[in-house]
Design a protein around this nucleic acid. Sequence first.
DNA 1: TTGTATGCGTTATCAT
DNA 2: ATGATAACGCATACAA
Lengths: 336, 336
Amino acid sequence: MKKDFSTPTMKDVAKEAGVALGTVSKVVNGLPVGDSYRIRVEAAIQKLNYQVNSYAQGLKANKTYTVALLIPNTIEPFYASLTYYINVALMKKRYRMLLCATDYDPRQEQEYIMMAQQNKVDGIIGLTYNPNLIVDENTPFVAIDRSMGSKIPCVACDNFAGGQLAAEKLADLGCKHVAFLRSGSTLDNEPNKRKAGFETGCLSRGLSYEMKILNDGDPFEEFEHFISEHIHDGRLSFDGIFCVTDRLAYHILSILHRLQIRVPEDVQLIGFDGIRTFGSIDYHCSTIVQPVSDMAEMCVDLLLRENTMAKPPLVCLPVTYAYGGTTLEEKAPANC
Amino acid sequence: MKKDFSTPTMKDVAKEAGVALGTVSKVVNGLPVGDSYRIRVEAAIQKLNYQVNSYAQGLKANKTYTVALLIPNTIEPFYASLTYYINVALMKKRYRMLLCATDYDPRQEQEYIMMAQQNKVDGIIGLTYNPNLIVDENTPFVAIDRSMGSKIPCVACDNFAGGQLAAEKLADLGCKHVAFLRSGSTLDNEPNKRKAGFETGCLSRGLSYEMKILNDGDPFEEFEHFISEHIHDGRLSFDGIFCVTDRLAYHILSILHRLQIRVPEDVQLIGFDGIRTFGSIDYHCSTIVQPVSDMAEMCVDLLLRENTMAKPPLVCLPVTYAYGGTTLEEKAPANC
DNA sequence: TTGTATGCGTTATCAT
DNA sequence: ATGATAACGCATACAA
């Protein structure tokens, strides 16, 4: 019994064109071939609707033009945006992307890494939460937002400068006493530098500040308690807040509304991340903007760079400030 | 010259364990093997850190356990959510996902399809905008939100019922004269049924309505004109609006704010999609909720279903209504 | 220049 | 039950 319904192979093309197998391979790969042969082969390819089998290619060449992306999910705007831009950056270089949504689960992260290795990916880009990931020595790896040792490059925005910038902005906009709010992973990662940057900025501008830091398990309600405690005679005792993410800022905003504190009149609010899901019209809050597209390109560049020696252990990309309605401003930027 | 730094193969394991190649294969695949052999092989696998090569498997078996997802991007909440849940549904069945962000570009869509076919994917799930996609007959395909002929199943939410539900909700909440606003692709797709459903709902409830429909190229500002034109003596001439997406609702909301129209006091607003990126605390507007997770599961089920005959041409999944602050409500649902 | 033969890592069909 | 061998589709070194 012969294969019949299956997709055509090079052998079929060769037979159809009346040439040898190697000749077809050369035509497909753009290697020099006599014109008369080339034409016949191309005609046969058209006729049979032939497409190369990347699996056979990959097996032979030990290269798959495939990269795995490990990311908690694609729903939170920062992850969603990163995923998109990394996909675009890979596509530009004609690489395919294996998406691995890990749900912050260290076990799933490890499982996906093994899957990727079995799939012989040419590299892995990972924003992960497992501190002891086991990843094969000869599978290139680029980490986002977390240092995983000097052999693995880490790409992040300049989180420290971002915190500093937030403090300076609040000072510029007239704040005197501010608060720093943080929740999220206590894992040793780059975004944690936002706090140190903010403190540095406050000190250099003579801003006094307090901090409320929630650890992983803590209930979000604690932020509401914290804010309530700082209301005396209907007035909030600080006039500026820096939230470690836009997500948190969004949450704080709803608390403030509920407590009848006006933003930005009574208190100004700055978040961090700066993703605008619907283009320029869409913002929750003023924010420190991560250069997501640049970070994505950098990840891909570093990952696919041949020269292993030229891979720096940490790359910090510059952040910017963007107005978003929760700070006072000379004037709001034009919409649309 | 021998391979040396490359990853170990079955042959290496066989040599290490002192058994034949076939025996290793059996152990790896869980086929019956003598216990003494099994133990030696497993030890060798451990020692060498062996992992199967899915590319060799795929070549042999003509099955790759890989599915491609074609989606415009992963940034807009509905697409982001769909991507995530499809990834989860695939993972459950131990399938890998090739992410293809197409940017609404018909050419990229076609390119990605060819790439997927060369990659010998076991199937393709696509939310596409190219009406003449060429896709190989023997590559299973499931479409989202767009019918592509009776041979290709289409998965969507019940868009007609959703439009109807929106009209009924507005009627229940006291509206008398409402508006339908729409922008987006004019391509013949399932979401376009929202309009017909809404009209049907209005008629059955005796609601009068007007419509403003923007075509692909039209500037968004037209919505602002439309609304301005319907303000007389500071009052809007309709008391309810149904927007064809949450994205549009969000935009309309900011226009209404600018025009000093209060929501929901002066006019109630219902959108469509219902993605909450930050969990339950996060909403822009009241909305008709698509069952994204169910849609994702359905796509995967249909795609991987062996029995080709059992694939219905169109599957519509039920929608629900969710309060989100832009409609009057008996009381807001408890947060958290 | 074109054709032939071998091997990539695996699975499956054979004998043993 | 285990070991040898062919085949999957392609690329390439080598022979013609």
